[in-house]
């Protein structure tokens, strides 16, 4: 399978178009459904941190999920079964990259599904799709 990868974070100019692209999969503008986070590493003069799901082959977020709402995917990463999720937020803490975002409306996690929609809106080649596991 393929995963979304951060090919070169030093090329990131912090435009956040990937975040808006991710949210657009659900139809509208804004950011509340975005699974990506780009922030500065302590002021933009020090560059940017691009936080995306790594598609772990053995994902810790799924291990700590008390209701098995996060199901490991073949090849890496997780899928969310919203019917099982109780919104406890354990997965947020378990991810060492803090790559899980939170949907305040449904009180459930937002996880990257590695669809690659954001890649087409990264003007500087920071994001790309790659074969995974390597």
């Amino acid at each position: 399978m393929k995963r979304l990868a951060v090919l070169d974070p030093d090329r990131c100019t912090g435009c956040q178009l990937c975040m808006f692209a991710c949210n657009r999969r659900f139809g509208g503008g804004g950011l509340s459904y975005s699974a990506i986070m780009v922030r500065s590493s302590g002021g933009v003069e020090r560059g940017f941190v691009v936080v995306v799901c790594r598609a772990c082959p053995d994902p810790p977020c799924a291990k700590v999920c008390p209701t098995d709402a996060l199901v490991p995917r073949k090849g890496g990463g997780v899928m969310l079964n919203p019917n099982k999720c109780i919104g406890c937020g354990m997965c947020l803490e378990a991810c060492p990259f803090r790559a899980i975002q939170w949907d305040e409306h449904t009180n459930k996690p937002i996880v990257c599904v590695h669809c690659g929609y954001c890649v087409d809106y990264c003007p500087h080649g920071v994001l790309g799709m790659e074969e995974w596991p390597k």
Partner: peptide, 16 residues
């Protein structure tokens, strides 16, 4: 040394 963008702008005109 670096260029950056305003939020939601792909141009990154800010030169540092």
């Amino acid at each position: 040394g670096r260029r950056f963008s305003c939020s939601h702008c792909p141009v990154s005109c800010v030169h540092i």
